[in-house]
Write a protein that binds this DNA or RNA. Structure first.
Lengths: 166, 166
DNA sequence: CGCGATGGCGTTATCATATAACATTAAGGA
DNA sequence: TCCTTAATGTTATATGATAACGCCATCGCG
């Protein structure tokens, strides 16, 4: 399930992809410096690959990409990096796909949530706190203490819906 | 990861567990009859085991339970039954656990959503349409066409929160 | 500066989750 | 009855994740 290399080129809204990756990395550098975390070479490279793929990316695809450049990584290498990045809040796991994606959002008052397009495969992280509010009030009512949320909405993104419609 | 046999006994709110299973099965029978679906012996047994376990249940645990009684099932046997039951809407998959749980709810106007207790392991399916409404309006705004939702809220259920508090 | 503790990584093995592919059997309609 | 189709059996394998152990780099401390 390696993503075709052309996916980046298929980007719906043209954006400066290199800059977007660089930006994510510099945010990661800053966050780790600030928190006393060590963004080692492998961790940084895994994060970079995730951003470069621009889609939810599977652990074994990352492993293959790492091995293409260094040739000697085993699954724990990648999973440990992923665990670190998850812990640091730099990436999220898309549970419905067993895949990982860079975090694009500030989560001080929001839990991660995604709109995932079944056609182009992109996962857009959305920031609405409305959803969190409603869940919080439902939970309150049930006496349930919320710890973590998994919210993944599958469907068709605007661009893909438009090009399907014709 | 086989669940201990005592879990059923640990049920928070005492309820007639046998009746609850029987009820689920008769609803399944009715639905399949009505829709022209075949609830075969294996499919029915898998559904029954899922209800009997009373918690999100893993495919390989079901396989072990099946094999304990018939001794000759391989993974596809269970996965095919699960696929059928998912398709029919008789069970849901808890993505964050790779586990399956009986559907307790009418989904005409709701997508499945769960409160999952990290202490007792129970997953309560909740029926609020508020959450769906908010997601629908967020999606609308983004031009995203919703197909399916995965909503899993982890935390502490009321009973476990109470007994932890002390 | 050197030393020791800790955390990160390499390596091997294995467990856990899920599906492909093809053979066989059972159910239901013509 | 026979034929078609759907369901199941069976074998093999793909895919996702972790356990366990040893080595080595980094960093705080004397």
């Amino acid at each position: 399930m390696v993503q075709p290399a052309t996916n980046v080129a298929l980007s719906h809204s043209a954006h400066d992809h290199d800059a977007c990756i660089a930006d994510a990395l510099s945010r990661a550098d800053a966050l780790c410096r600030q928190q006393g975390l060590r963004l080692t070479a492998i961790r940084r490279r895994v994060l970079e690959l995730i951003w470069a793929n621009h889609q939810p990316t599977k652990a074994y695809d990352l492993l293959a990409q790492i091995n293409a450049e260094r040739g000697n990584a085993a699954p724990p290498t990648v999973y440990r990096a992923l665990d670190f990045l998850l812990e640091a809040g730099l990436i999220h796991k898309i549970e419905s796909q067993n895949a990982f994606i860079g975090c694009a959002v500030d989560h001080e008052r929001n839990q991660p949530k995604f709109f995932i397009c079944r056609t182009c495969g992109r996962a857009a992280e959305i920031q609405s706190s409305q959803i969190d509010d409603v869940i919080a009030s439902e939970a309150e009512e049930a006496g349930f203490v919320v710890d973590h949320q998994t919210i993944e909405v599958d469907g068709l993104c605007a661009a893909c819906a438009a090009s399907t419609k014709s």
